[in-house]
Every structure is written in C-alpha cells, then in structure tokens.
Simulated scan of single mutants.
Amino acid sequence: MIRVDGLTIAGKLTDIRLTVQPGELVAVVGSRGSGKSTLVRALVGLVPPDGGTVTVGGHPAGSDAGRALVGAASEAWGLMERLTVWENLNTFARLRGAPRDRAAALLNRLDLGGRRDVRVDRLTPGEAARLRLACALVHDPSVLFLDEPAGDIDSESASLIAFTVAQEAEAGKTVLVMTFGDPRILGVASRICYLEGGRLVEPEAAAAGEPAPPSAVRRPVPHVAARKGDRVLLFRPEEIRFAYARDKAVYIETPEGTCGVSFTLAELEERLADSGFFRSHKAYLVNLAYVREIAAWTRDSYSLILKDGEEVPLSKHRAHELRVRLNG
C-alpha cells in the first residue's frame, strides 16, 4: 500500500494526501510543471519532504525496506545507452537479485525478444519505454511507480504498456502512474487524480482554480484492454457486444472481431457494471444495447437475439431477472 499524508515540498507540492491499495491502478494526471515527477521522486525517496510523510508497505519512502518493495520507471532516469537490451535488463536483475528466467520472460512479454542484442541508443522511443517497464518489473515488486510510461511513443507500444500495467494491478500490485492524460493509461486506471500547481484537485475545482479535498478522485470510463494476435487494443464498453468464457479463457466480441482479455468473467462483469451489461448465462455477459429481442424456444430454453442476428445464451432464471429489469 502507498500512503501519502500531507506531503509538502517547498515550491513543488502542497499537502498531498493519497492512499493507493493493493490491486489499484491510480493515474495522476497533470501538465508539465504540475509536480508529477517531483511526486514520483518523493515516493521513491529521492527528494526529502519538507512536511508530511510517505510510506510504502508501511515503511518510510526511501528506506531499505521500502525500496525493496518498489519498481519504478521514468524517462528522466534513463537506461544504459551503450549496453544492449538484454545487458540492461540483466544488470537490473542482478542488482535486484532476480532470476534470469524472469528477465527473459519479460523480454517476450513486452515484445523485446527480437531486440535482445540491440544497443539501447538504437531503440525506438516505444521500445525504450517497454524496456524501462521491464526493468521496473524484473524483481517482481509489490509496488509500481511509473512516470509517463506511455508518453510520446507509438500507439502499439503504449497499448502494450497499458495492458501490462493493468495486468500487474489485477495480480495485486499497488500501481501509481503519472501521465499527461494518455487515454490508454486512463482507460485501464481504477481511479484518476488531478495534480495542478502542486495540489490534488477535483475536475470541477480545477476549472475554478480551487483546492480539493484529499480524496480528489473520480472513476474513468472503464476501457477494456484486450489482445488480438500480437496487437494490444483498448475498447470502450459500447464497442463490446458480449463477452464469454471458454476453456479457462475469456473473450470479447468487438468491431475488431474476437479478442482475448486477462479478466475473469466475474471481474469483467464488475468492471462493466455501470455500462449496461447483463450476465445472461454463467458463461456469457451481454451488452443490452445490442439486444433486439428475447427468444423463447421452449418452456425452459431462451436466447438473446442481437441486432446483427447473432444469438447469445440466456438461462431460465436469468430470463426472468432480465424481464423484471426491463419492465422495472
């Protein structure tokens, strides 16, 4: 867990209060000069506070115990440009006591396997960003601090980074991301905070220039990250017709066709709870905006007919529940 209580750094941050729980991915949105990078540096113990406290997993930020829990990445901290991708990652692994097989797995996970022996100064910005994330993850930290992980890079790299960071949060990590407002990061965030002039502010208060309460957060539209082949895509709820579970995997039907997701069906149902989705069957979740009619084939056999003519299973007790919901 990350707990920031009254953090103040003269001329940079004022009375920052924020708690991030395990399993949360919190995005802090701010323009250049808003204090985002200073906040990250304070969280990892590189900048001592003038007031307030910062703890990571119950330990003071910057302490040996706190640092052992943290993985962090920022373009400002850089990579070793004259070393190769593998040499960089392996160096971080050795410094953190991480096994080589985890480093190798991260290369593949972040689509860097084919760039293993390329020097960092010959990477594209997107490849370098993916390598920074791999280095932050190599020791399997419980807390992640990321400063603009998807800024000014190609769309495919940004989507893969957002997808990977979301997976880490789903696995129970505590994740805090600083961003100018990248839609892919915001799409997978569980909460969004706004940092302006060194203060956390509400969206409404930002327009008026007024400070907000310590809990200045809001929930974003719950985009869903998915894979189709080697591509990582983000979908808005209204783009998903239905989702289903099959062979221990979950898939969504989208304008791009069938895509796999890392959520369980129950997790996806919770994420889309406010977006008009209905659990029509133990293995199906359907967007009611796409439903044309309820078809009763026999006394105990039902289906939902979608507007494109496709059928989705509807169990008997769910049929009754749906009728009550539609008539209520």
Rank of each mutant, 00 (worst) to 15 (best):
residue 2 I to K: 08
residue 5 D to P: 01
residue 12 K to L: 15
residue 14 T to M: 03
residue 15 D to G: 08
residue 20 V to Y: 04
residue 25 L to G: 01
residue 25 L to H: 05
residue 30 G to I: 03
residue 31 S to Y: 09
residue 35 G to I: 07
residue 37 S to G: 10
residue 40 V to Y: 02
residue 44 V to T: 14
residue 47 V to P: 02
residue 52 G to L: 14
residue 55 T to W: 01
residue 60 P to V: 06
residue 63 S to G: 12
residue 67 R to D: 05
residue 67 R to G: 07
residue 68 A to Q: 13
residue 72 A to E: 13
residue 72 A to C: 15
residue 85 V to P: 00
residue 86 W to M: 01
residue 87 E to N: 06
residue 88 N to R: 02
residue 89 L to H: 02
residue 91 T to D: 09
residue 94 R to L: 15
residue 94 R to Q: 15
residue 98 A to V: 11
residue 107 L to N: 03
residue 109 R to F: 07
residue 113 G to W: 03
residue 115 R to G: 00
residue 116 R to G: 01
residue 117 D to T: 13
residue 118 V to P: 07
residue 125 P to G: 00
residue 128 A to P: 00
residue 131 L to W: 09
residue 138 V to K: 01
residue 140 D to S: 12
residue 141 P to N: 12
residue 141 P to T: 10
residue 143 V to S: 06
residue 145 F to W: 11
residue 151 G to T: 08
residue 153 I to S: 00
residue 157 S to H: 05
residue 161 I to S: 02
residue 165 V to L: 04
residue 166 A to P: 02
residue 169 A to G: 09
residue 175 V to A: 03
residue 180 F to R: 13
residue 183 P to G: 10
residue 187 G to L: 06
residue 190 S to W: 06
residue 194 Y to N: 07
residue 202 E to D: 14
residue 203 P to D: 13
residue 205 A to V: 01
residue 219 R to E: 15
residue 228 K to S: 14
residue 230 D to M: 12
residue 235 F to L: 14
residue 236 R to Y: 12
residue 237 P to L: 11
residue 238 E to V: 10
residue 245 A to D: 05
residue 245 A to S: 15
residue 250 V to F: 00
residue 253 E to R: 14
residue 254 T to Q: 10
residue 254 T to M: 08
residue 259 C to G: 06
residue 260 G to K: 13
residue 261 V to H: 02
residue 262 S to I: 11
residue 264 T to G: 05
residue 280 S to K: 07
residue 284 Y to Q: 10
residue 284 Y to I: 11
residue 285 L to M: 07
residue 285 L to N: 03
residue 286 V to P: 00
residue 291 V to P: 03
residue 293 E to Y: 06
residue 293 E to D: 13
residue 297 W to H: 15
residue 299 R to W: 07
residue 300 D to R: 10
residue 303 S to Q: 13
residue 304 L to N: 04
residue 305 I to A: 01
residue 305 I to W: 02
residue 312 V to S: 02
residue 315 S to N: 10
residue 315 S to Y: 12
residue 316 K to L: 11
residue 320 H to C: 01
residue 323 R to Y: 09
residue 325 R to Q: 15
residue 326 L to P: 11
